Simulated scan of single mutants.
Amino acid sequence: MTKQAIGFIDSGVGGLTVVKEAMRQLPNESIYYVGDTARCPYGPRLEEQVRQFTWEMTHFLLDKDIKMLVIACNTATAAALEDIKKKLAIPVIGVILPGSRAAIKATTNNHIGVIGTAGTVKSDMYKKMIQSKDKKATVNSLACPKFVPIVESNEYNSAIAKKVVAETLKPMQNKGVDTLILGCTHYPLLRPIIQNVMGKQVTLIDSGAETVSEVSTILDYFDIAVDSKNKEKSERCFYTTGSTQMFQEIASGWLGLEEMNVEQIKLGSH
């Protein structure tokens, strides 16, 4: 058992969807979160740059003595997970493998869709992961570059969001998918709109939520979970490279927290 925090990193506020699930499944665990909102979105960036930014966030949290790192960003997972896993002594988890497993389990017709950033779709990591575990699966991927800016600007409930989601998902509607992976942790904030556009017959897979189940398993495996009998209150600290006000508006509403400790930090040179 260890009282050290679990670290979560993301290009912006999207990883908060993972944190929300972590707070539900692992209420006794302390959480440190870094959202690189000043340099978001990561999707259009070069892989080398995404890897550099991911390492900068990682080093920041390592200085906080975290016990586990969750790369709560699909683009960063595709670009940097393997490199970081090799070099850190603590467990490191990404969001692509858990989401892929869940989709394979959920599909009944072996037609799986993936929506994500340009970087995630270009990497083809979901397709590779899914087909390495199920050769019969057909995977159709679609980049949705406008989704992250909508979430980051706190417009995910707006009429604009509905219009953009409907227009963007048109190519996916005739692919015959019965399961759709939300391959970006920002996308669950758009989930009701995405579900409405795709139809009730399509099962949506939240890769971030699936990741937390794996986090729980690994905590137990390494015996580093906080004991439920521990009377100390879990600590939740949030760091952003951008506006603390915008971050807090989105985070407090999504996480249901009235009081939040949000601090602005600098990583590298913006």
Score class of each variant (00 low, 15 high):
M1H: 03
T2I: 11
K3Q: 15
I6V: 11
S11M: 03
S11I: 05
G14E: 04
G15Q: 12
A22M: 09
R24Y: 04
Q25P: 02
Q25M: 07
L26N: 08
E29Y: 12
I31Q: 10
Y33Q: 10
V34N: 04
D36Q: 02
D36T: 02
A38H: 10
R39D: 08
C40G: 01
P41Y: 03
P44Q: 13
E48H: 12
Q49T: 10
V50H: 01
Q52T: 06
E56W: 04
F60M: 05
L61M: 05
D65Q: 14
I66C: 00
I66L: 05
K67C: 04
K67Y: 15
M68A: 01
V70P: 01
I71E: 11
N74R: 04
T75M: 06
A76E: 11
T77N: 13
A80V: 02
D83K: 14
K85C: 05
K85R: 15
K87Q: 13
K87S: 08
P91A: 08
P91Y: 12
V92R: 12
V92P: 07
V92F: 13
I93N: 03
I96L: 14
L97N: 06
P98Q: 13
P98N: 08
G99W: 12
G99F: 09
G99P: 02
S100L: 04
S100H: 05
R101G: 10
R101K: 14
T107A: 09
N109W: 12
H111L: 09
V114K: 09
I115W: 07
G119A: 06
G119Y: 08
V121L: 11
K127R: 14
K127Y: 07
I130H: 12
N140Q: 13
C144W: 05
P145C: 09
K146V: 05
V148S: 04
V148L: 05
E152S: 05
S158N: 13
I160F: 10
V164P: 08
A166H: 15
E167T: 14
L169Q: 14
L169G: 10
L169T: 12
K170N: 15
K170P: 03
N174Y: 09
V177F: 00
L180M: 03
I181P: 00
L182H: 00
P188W: 08
P188Y: 07
L189I: 01
I194T: 00
M198P: 06
M198W: 15
G199Y: 10
K200E: 11
Q201W: 06
L204C: 01
A209H: 00
T211W: 08
T211Y: 09
V215R: 10
S216D: 13
L219V: 10
D220W: 15
Y221I: 07
F222V: 14
A225M: 11
D227V: 03
K229C: 01
K231G: 03
E235R: 05
T240Q: 12
S243D: 08
Q245A: 11
A251C: 04
A251H: 02
W254T: 02
W254M: 02
L255W: 00
L257F: 00
E258F: 02
N261I: 00
V262W: 09
V262F: 09
Q264W: 10
S269K: 13
